[in-house]
Simulated scan of single mutants.
Amino acid sequence: MAHPSPHDPTAERWNDVDAYLTGTLVAPDEALSASIASLADEGMPEIEVAPLTGKLLHLLARIAGARRVLEVGTLGAYSTIWLARALPAGGRVVTIEAEPHNAEVARRNLARAGVADRVEVREGRGADVLPTLAGDEPFDLVFIDADKESNALYLDWAARLGRPGTVVVVDNVVRSGHVVETDAGAQVDGVRAGLAVLRDDPRFEATALQTLDRKGWDGVAIAILV
């Protein structure tokens, strides 16, 4: 039986690499750390994006020159802070959170980070809130990180509320490899349905990247509206 190479992607190795890259490329930040800590303190699920992914969102927003950002799924506002900090003067993040308690915690974290003035937290289910945004100025970046069962719906609204060139990012598209299975449950079914939209809907041009970090084996899809 072959012994694993010391360079095989074991959990210990990829966590070490994640810690190294995070320590090298993501500066320590009190407000972001407090946002992460608030999840455990408030009994919320600790499912925020990893720091490297947070910075990726930040950089994508800056690369896109985004002034208006839409986020579906706020949780404790960790990713929201990253996005808000990427905006120029007068920029705006609209973030949607279904759970009132989560929204309350998010608002406190946004205030602590000094970005509450550029973020609007809208409470309610995405399916109910997204139609209320129709007719407003289009969004330049959309980040989808909510209930996976609704990914296809959220992507449809991303296309409706964006413009040609809008960047769309969908989190958690690998699900520890279960995305290749057709009987892995409703969340995986929702991920696969969303990826099918990105493949088949002519409004999108997309790719996806697998990730290995402190959140485990997962990935993100990145698209633009055409």
Results as ranks from 00 to 15, higher is better:
Leu225Trp: 05
Asp18Leu: 12
Val94Gln: 07
Phe139Lys: 03
Asp189Tyr: 00
Ala113Asp: 04
Gly114Asn: 11
Pro202Asn: 05
Glu71Arg: 06
Ile36Arg: 15
Asn15Ile: 01
Ala116Cys: 13
Arg122Val: 14
Gly216Phe: 00
Gly185Leu: 00
Trp14Val: 13
Ser33Thr: 14
Asn109Ile: 10
Arg62Asn: 08
Glu46Thr: 13
Pro45Ser: 05
Leu195Phe: 03
Trp14Gly: 10
Pro45Arg: 01
Trp82Gln: 02
Asp117Gly: 15
Asp147Tyr: 02
Gln210Asn: 13
Ala37Val: 08
Thr10Ser: 12
His58Phe: 08
Pro28Gln: 06
Val188Ile: 08
Asp145Pro: 07
Gly124Arg: 00
Ile81Ser: 11
Leu60Asn: 04
Gly90Ser: 08
Val188Met: 07
Ala223Ser: 08
Glu42Phe: 00
Ile81Lys: 12
Trp157Asn: 11
Val94Phe: 05
Pro88Asp: 07
Glu104Ala: 13
Val169Gln: 09
Ala196Arg: 10
Val129Ile: 15
Ala84Val: 06
Ile144Asn: 11
Val168Lys: 10
Leu130Arg: 14
Ile96Glu: 07
Phe204Pro: 06
Ala196Ser: 07
Ile36Leu: 15
Val226Ile: 03
Leu209Asp: 04
Arg85Pro: 05
Gly23Glu: 12
Pro51Ile: 02
Val121Met: 11
Asp41Cys: 09
Asp145His: 09
Pro202Ile: 02
Lys215Met: 10
Thr10Phe: 01
Ile222Ala: 15
Ser35Arg: 03
Ala196Asp: 10
Ala106Ile: 00
Lys215Val: 07
Leu25Arg: 13
Asp128His: 00
Trp217Ile: 12
Asn172Gln: 14
Asp147Glu: 13
Arg67Phe: 04
His178Thr: 10
Leu75Met: 12
Thr74Glu: 04
Val72Phe: 05
Ala77Gln: 07
Ala34His: 01
Arg163Ser: 13
Gly126Lys: 10
Lys215Thr: 09
Glu48Pro: 01
Leu133Ile: 06
Val170Thr: 12
Gly23Val: 11
Ser150Glu: 12
Glu181Leu: 08
His3Gln: 15
Arg13Ala: 10
Asn109Gln: 13
His58Thr: 10
Pro6Phe: 00
Thr10Asp: 02
Glu181Pro: 00
Ala98Asp: 10
Ser176Asn: 15
Arg13Lys: 07
Gly162Thr: 03
Ala146His: 03
Arg125Ala: 15
Gly76Asp: 02
Leu52His: 10
Arg67His: 13
Ala84Asn: 07
Val169Leu: 11
Ala113Glu: 05
Ile63Val: 09
Leu59Tyr: 02
Gly114Leu: 09
Glu120Trp: 02
Tyr20Lys: 09
Arg108Ala: 12
His3Lys: 15
Asp140Ala: 04
Arg175His: 03
Val49Tyr: 01
Met1Arg: 15
Ala152Lys: 03
Val173Ile: 11
Pro131His: 11
Gly126Ile: 07
His178Ile: 00
Val174Thr: 15
Ala103Gly: 05
Phe204Trp: 03
Ala86Gly: 14
Asp156Leu: 03
Glu46Cys: 11
Gly194Gln: 04
Val226Gln: 06
Trp217Asp: 11
Ala113Tyr: 00
Leu52Glu: 12
